[in-house]
Structure formats: C-alpha cells, structure tokens
Design a protein around this nucleic acid. Structure first.
Lengths: 339, 339
DNA sequence: GACCGAATTGGTATCGATACCAACTGTTGC
DNA sequence: GCAACAGTTGGTATCGATACCAATTCGGTC
C-alpha cells in the first residue's frame, strides 16, 4: 500500500522500468534481475496500483452492471454467471442495484462513465429519453439483457414469442379464461411485448379479449401477490389459468391462491417466465418459460468482450447492433393442469 | 471520454485549475467563469476521469464486497442494503461472488488491494491461514458479516445463542428428538458456533446427544434437500423436528419432506436461521431466527465508514476490533408445531 | 492616492504506473 | 580487432486530474 514502484526499484537497485517489466512478465528480463525484484517486492509487501496502471493504459478492466433487483433469484443467477465469465477474463464488476427504480439508471451510467468502465451490462428495460440519449452518445460498449425497445445490442429471449408460447400452452390444455400479470406497460419494451404475445395468442385461438383479466405492476413477488388478490376480488372464478410475466410474480400469485385455499394446479393453473431457481423451490414447482441462464450470460459477455476488443482499432461510436435472441423453452413442472 | 480537463480549459479560455474548481464546487469561483466552464463542458460532452482523480487523491470511493453466494436470498438482501447505504454516501461496490469457494477469497482480496478500494465487506466465514495473514497485514479497513473466528471487526448475530434459542424453542414445544443441518464445521466459525448452540441446548434440557442426527454441508438449498434425504433414509422417524443453519437449507429440507409426503409442521417441525425473503415465500412460511437485515447493513456500513474516516489521521494498521452483536429474534411463522 | 485584505485566477509539480527511446553488454562472424 | 546484432537495462515524458503557491483584480479605508 505504502510502497511504490520506485521504492521497489531502489530497494532492488534497479530502475522502475525493470520492476514494471518483472510485474508484467515482459520478455528480456534476466533471471538475476527478476529474483532481485521479486525479493524487494516481497520485502516491502508491495502491491501495484491499478489506479496508476489504468490511467496510463486507459483501461480499467471493470464492467459496470445495472441490475433491476438482486433479490430476484433469476437476476441474481444471471449476475452470478456474468461475474464468473468476467472474472475468468480478468474483469471485475461494479454493481448497481436500482431496485426497479428507473430514475437511478442515469446516475449510475454517469458514474460508470466517470469510472471509465470498459463495458456495461444493462439489466433493466424501462427507458427514459435521457437514458436513451446517454446510450446513444457514449462510446462505452453496452449490452442489454432486457427488451429496451430500440436498437441496442441485447441478449434476450423473444418476449413476444415466449408469452405467446406460454399462453398457447395453457389454451392447448383447455383453458379459455386466462388472466395475466404483466410488467409495466408504459414503455415499449419487455412489459409490452409480453402482453402483446398474450393478446396475440388469445386472439389466434378466438378467446374473447377481457382487459379486466390483465393487471400490470413490476416483476416483484409481492406485487404478484397483491395483483392476484385484486384479480380474485374483482374477477374471482372468471379465470382458470394465470400467466405471469416473471417467476416472482407467478410465485406471489401461487402463494396468494394457496393462502385463500385455492389449489394450484387443481383450481388454477399458473405459468411464469424465467424458470430461475425459484421455480424449483416452490411447491408445486413452477411450470415456466425457461430463460437459459448459461447461454445468456455467455452470450452477453462474449458480445461485450468482442465490442470491447473492437473499440481499440475500429471506432464504432454508436450503440447500434442487432438483438441476439436466445431460444427459450417451456419447461413443464407441476403448476399447470388440463382444464 | 475523449476530452480532458485541458481541452475544456482551452475551450473556455481559462486554466485547468479553474475547471477543476468548477467541477468540485470550490468557493471563490465567479459566476461568469462558472458559466463559461459549464458551457465548454456541455459542448465537449466532457466527463471527468475518476481514475486520474483517484490517483491524485489516493482514494477511490470503492468498497469491495466478497459475498458467499448472491443467489441466496438472505445474502442478496444484505448486498442490496449495503449497496444502498454506500451509494447514498458516494461509494460504489466492487462485487465478488465466490460461490462458497473459499479458495477464491484470497485472489479477490488481492484484486481489491490492487484496486485500492477504500474498504472491504467480507461475507464469508471460512478462513485459511493465508486469508488470515492477508487480513492482518493489510491496512484496508475490513468489516465482516460472518463469524470468522478471530479478532476482526464484525457485525453478526450471536450464532451460538441463536442456535440455542432455536433449539430451546423446539424443546419447549415438546420436541425431544431434534435433528440438525449444520454448516461446515471444519472451521472455528459460524458452522461450529451454531452446532455448539444446538449441542448446548440439547444438553441443558437433558436430550441424549445423537451425532447421527447431525449432518454437515454448506448453506445451500440443494444441500439441505440432500442432507434431509440422508437423514430420512438413515434415521427416518427418529426425529420430530429439524433445526437448519440457514433459511435455504431449511427450505431444502421442507421441500424434501413435502416430496416424500411428510407434512410440515404436522409430521416434522422445521426452524431455520436468517429469516430472509425466502422464509415468507415458502409454504408453510418458515419459522426462523431472524437476522435484522436493516440494522446489520447499517451497522456494517457505519463501522466501515468510521474506519475509513480514521485511516486518514490516526494510523491503525491492525484489523483488531470488537465484534458487534446485533440482537436476533425468533419469528414464529408456520413451520413449527407442538410435538 | 496609496495600501490592505479578500476574492479570484493561473502555473506547475505531483500522484504511480507504463511506453518509448537510448545505452550498454556480450556473442558471433569476418 | 571490429561491425552487427540480439538481449538487457535505464531515463524520462506521459496518462488526467488536484494541490499548492503565486499573481492579479477589486473594493474599501485612511
């Protein structure tokens, strides 16, 4: 902490340059010199300063992550995967948990920019005009794991199709009155897409659209519980199945039904999206559209590192880039049943 | 990104020093100058480099966090709390998820030291001699949220007493044959303390010690499931209650029992430790020793910032300091019943 | 009108590394 | 013995901010 490269150089009787060479395993270093230097490092308990190094190299090996809610099991598992990929490539994570609070996003983006992170992973779909502008202006590579509604490199499942598949599955099992717990639909993104998929499937199979069977909120468990309560109160008995836009909301709903004496799946079938750890924890186990976490985290980091690599030579300041759709699949567990 | 403070200075027709003053809201800056500078900043889309700033100030406003497993609901909620406290004090988090892998701890500690983080939160109790040495030598303030078994500032509940209370509660409800799912006991820490509390309560109330009712693992849900299976296979019927050293293990066990047709709490009572979000998610809701997350995160950050503040003037290189015990409480929910 | 102190502004060394260029050493071939 | 060259080593400018000291301006006072 206290000793600098110069101190080591002095103690070893060599130049700072040589110490630097030893630290970075450069070629053209004699064994004798290396030994002297390593000894001095040991003696002084020297640790190189990444701050200085970063300043000189103009690279930090930091990845900024904006996560909507770490206490969501699905998101935590994605975070964990990203961390692992990054660590094995020498990158470390600056994590910002916004607790679903969109207004914090911009602040953290600025922090990341000031910190000169090498890349950003954005795990939150709601946008504001300011956020969009920031993203378009910055030249830090960003990869989203969210349906942001504009042209930004992203790794996601096809949210429309995922919702469609979920609802179609319920319909095939004989359900005709299907409620939905949606995300926030005030933005053209995840929430909207998943709702659209729901609506499309309903229409395709000739189910009468009934807006009062759809409730919007965020993706949290408590919200799922609350909205399910509302549904029961307002429209109790009017639906035999429920499609929730996240595991957490689905489980919230299951718990609500359980607490009201309704049995899942006997009285009501429930299907979710994510298929994260929680889907195996609850009883009955949650049937859900499964987002393959491994493939997703892998794709996110691959894409990010690729873009970080490019940044050096080919200057591509804009954040345009195609969306990479990772195939989802419906995993049947125990929460759905024929009607 | 591209423009530096000098560019701004040139564009505004002032000195770099003045730009710096504007950026830091120093006194003695005329409105006219400030306006010119802000305009130039806007025009050049300038963002100050924290790297350079940090180098000069010798302070990073970064807190390194070593977390045992982010996918644990309890730990995620602690992380979330710490993040919030830190953010509101201008600090940001460098997060390392070790996935319960003790060997990664040392690597990350070195990374933190190289990054010159201002403080470290250690949320993992297992130690090695090397880790201990590192902690003793470094002068980065460290606060643990774990029972590490030696004199390091820590914020924890009294693990011995917590376990004792849990077991005593079961005994008071008439249980005499109580199994335990313990953490890892190869180290003198959390795992050991919680086991000791269990053993002490058993002894105090004259229960015959039966080592074969105790199984050790880590704190994960899957482990809880597996160990519960083992217990049932080896000692099925020999116990009416189970004390698990974490929420996750408790829920794993509950699920195992559920899958085997055993009812909780009717056939077996289960009590856990943590009282995190999961304890409200499972059905039956988990009765557990509750670790007050808010108070804990608050205490951790307070302690850390206090030590960071001190570092400047009074040099206190050693990491000794007392352990702060946060009072726990037993929260009765639905997973326990009279025997 | 000269002087004083406070407010405002600028110049430059510095934080701790690395990169680039220059210098030195020793070996080989003629 | 000398040139050529590869293998080592050292000196110093530099990354982009801030801190310290010096210079300047501006009122107001005597």
């Amino acid at each position: 902490m206290d000793s600098k490269i110069k101190d080591v150089a002095r103690a070893a009787g060599v130049s700072p340059t040589s110490v630097s060479r030893v630290l970075n395993n450069s070629p053209h270093v004699s064994e004798k010199l290396e030994k002297k230097v390593r000894q001095a490092i040991e003696q002084l308990n020297y640790t190189p300063s990444m701050i200085a190094k970063n300043l000189k190299r103009n690279k930090t090996n930091l990845i900024g992550v904006i996560i909507a809610d770490v206490t969501s099991g699905y998101q935590a598992s994605v975070l964990s995967g990203i961390e692992e990929e990054c660590a094995s490539n020498g990158y470390h994570l600056l994590v910002s948990n916004i607790k679903e609070n969109t207004r914090k996003v911009l602040d953290y983006l600025y922090v990341f920019q000031e910190m000169r992170v090498d890349g950003i992973v954005l795990m939150h779909g709601k946008m504001t005009e300011e956020i969009r502008n920031f993203i378009k202006r910055t030249n830090i590579p960003i990869v989203a794991h969210a349906d942001v509604g504009f042209d930004l490199p992203a790794v996601i499942i096809d949210n429309f199709q995922a919702a469609y598949d979920a609802v179609e599955y319920l319909i095939r099992r004989g359900h005709r009155r299907i409620a939905m717990l949606a995300g926030d639909m005030r933005d053209i993104s995840e929430g909207q897409r998943r709702y659209d998929g729901y609506a499309a499937a309903c229409e395709r199979y000739g189910l009468t659209a009934d807006e009062s069977l759809v409730r919007c909120g965020d993706y949290k468990l408590d919200t799922g519980y609350r909205l399910a309560e509302e549904l029961l109160a307002d429209r109790g008995g009017a639906f035999t199945a429920l499609f929730a836009a996240s595991d957490d909301m689905a489980v919230g709903a299951i718990n609500c039904f359980h607490d009201r004496g309704l049995r899942v799946p006997d009285d009501i079938s429930v299907i979710g999206i994510d298929g994260g750890p929680l889907s195996d924890i609850v009883r009955p186990r949650l049937t859900a559209i499964h987002q393959p976490v491994d493939r997703i985290t892998r794709a996110i980091t691959d894409l990010l590192f690729e873009r970080i690599g490019q940044g050096k030579d080919s200057r591509q300041d804009d954040q345009s880039g195609s969306i990479l759709y990772i195939p989802h699949r419906l995993v049947e567990k125990e929460s759905c049943k024929d009607c």
